[in-house]
Write a protein that binds this DNA or RNA. Structure first.
Lengths: 140, 140
DNA sequence: TCCTAGATTGGAATTATTCTTGATATCGGT
DNA sequence: ACCGATATCAAGAATAATTCCAATCTAGGA
């Protein structure tokens, strides 16, 4: 068998060049895909320990960094809080609900262009966008 | 004399209810208005020490927090870097030039509405928006 | 199977920020 | 101008998230 991981796969991408898929990385990734809330490294560590009780927090940080570097997950920061990790790798923003603390992904409407609503400096080439909204959801 | 600060004023707002304008706060504010780059607390500390050599970093943090709470300045965070402080209190975003490290304010085009380009959750009431772009300025 | 690069671990180190405490300064009322 | 209540300041200790480090460990190729 040539693949690093077998059958169930845990939602792993078929291939990711240059990335050795170790059990730790696999489990960190699986945990992130399983619950798509936006856990901190600590929360990831707690969840991963259920299956890999001996994994260290440093390793979780390492795995998260590696997965981020390979574009499999995203790291998101709100204010100066702990970094959170996001399994949605599409371009999107976040809505932080002040009441519940929950974080919701916000998609861009199709076809929108940044330059339509922002006064960009002339010649600016945008490589990364980060949009965070804070507010409340009206009681439905 | 009834006002806390006299003539030159240092760009201070005429009045800010509930805010005691101490020399430290005044100088921190003056420094921020003077150079509208986006200094960290440490950089503010260095600059302020030129006039108030005995001011402590803790006091600078206190002053910055107070000024932020009173809406006279804004605190901005990029990734997990040290917080930066921004004397532009209008609603705006930031462009982080990867090459120079410089941070440019980005204004919204007039009349744009968030809901025009973002898929907001129904009933969401937005209280704060944070937009950060990263990229480069094309060599002009 | 052996070798080597890369991965993991636990703990120490780092760094920005906050907290604590005592001293000082300021305000409003008299 | 004086007083008590309150707010601010300063210095250093404390905190918390993250990174670094040195010592194993592991997987995969020769």
């Amino acid at each position: 068998m040539s693949r690093l991981h077998d059958k169930a796969n845990g939602g792993l991408p078929e291939a990711c060049p240059g990335l050795r898929m170790t059990p730790q990385r696999q489990e960190v990734y699986r945990v992130l895909m399983g619950r798509r809330d936006h856990p901190t490294a600590n929360e990831v560590h707690s969840r991963v320990k259920k299956r890999l009780p001996n994994i260290s927090l440093a390793t979780v940080y390492n795995c998260l960094e590696t997965l981020v570097d390979h574009g499999l997950i995203r790291q998101v920061n709100f204010e100066r809080e702990s970094s959170r990790y996001c399994s949605n790798v599409n371009e999107h923003g976040h809505f932080h609900d002040a009441a519940s603390g929950a974080i919701h992904d916000i998609d861009f409407k199709p076809g929108v262009n940044l330059a339509d609503f922002l006064d960009l400096p002339p010649g600016a080439v945008i490589e990364d966008i980060e949009i965070t909204l804070r507010g409340k959801l009206a009681a439905s």
